[in-house]
């Protein structure tokens, strides 16, 4: 699935991943491909991207998660505002 992680300062990550774990305000979520459309807020924590056995970790302060049939969008702020 296509994941876009964007912040005001830059494009943090853009590309295909196998799965994605995010710190949602209702608890941690792991998202796989073909997840139902969803919108939720993110709280402070780590984003974990997994791709072919490799892991990538980003630290975020807060954000918004949007899943639509085409892609997964994460609008995050890396610094604290």
């Amino acid at each position: 699935m296509l994941v876009n992680i964007l912040s005001l300062e830059k494009v943090v990550y853009q590309g295909e991943v196998d799965s994605l774990t995010v710190p949602g305000i209702m608890g941690r979520l792991t998202i796989l491909a073909h997840h139902t459309p969803l919108i939720t807020f993110l709280k402070k924590g780590n984003l974990i991207l997994r791709k072919e056995g490799e892991e990538k970790i980003f630290e975020i302060k807060k954000g918004v998660l949007e899943i639509n049939p085409k892609e997964v969008n994460l609008l995050v702020s890396l610094t604290s505002f």
């Binding site: 305000i25 139902t36 459309p37 969803l38 919108i39 939720t40 085409k70």
Partner: peptide, 22 residues
């Protein structure tokens, strides 16, 4: 594209209001 049928967490009302302003 057509809008997907979203799930909102926690509730749709809360999210819509907060999300739009954010």
């Amino acid at each position: 594209e057509k809008s997907p049928d979203y799930i909102f967490e926690p509730s749709a009302k809360e999210i819509l209001d907060k999300l739009v302003s954010e």
